[in-house]
Amino acid sequence: MSDIKFTEDHEWIRMEDDETGVCGISDYAQDQLGELVFIELPETGIEVSQGSEAAVIESVKAAGELKAPVGGTIVEVNETLADEPELVNKDPQGDGWFMKIKVQDSSELDALMDEDAYQQYIDGLD
């Protein structure tokens, strides 16, 4: 399994093989949003560009969205989130994954932060 990468908007992506990455929102993001009550995932097969809105997230407190960490084609979504959005609160970087993206241009990954850089980034936010 390759390394996890993060965006400034608190999404993560982890490449499962050379072309497909699984993504979701970070632990920091779920903590800031609070308990999630609704998630709307995209349909598989659609294409997204890096930074475009790919999923809708509603918590008890607020509405948010997941922006695609890289551009590509949605190949799979985590259907269990429709009935159990709280999975994202419990395990944001594991069982609470949102979708898998077939990455169009792997150089887009290079602009993302690794785990250490992301930790420093969120430490600077408080």
Binding site: A29, Q32, I57, K61, A62, G64, K67
Partner: peptide
């Protein structure tokens, strides 16, 4: 992404 701004 979280848009809650705790304006302390």
């Amino acid at each position: 992404m979280p848009n809650e701004n705790a304006d302390k």
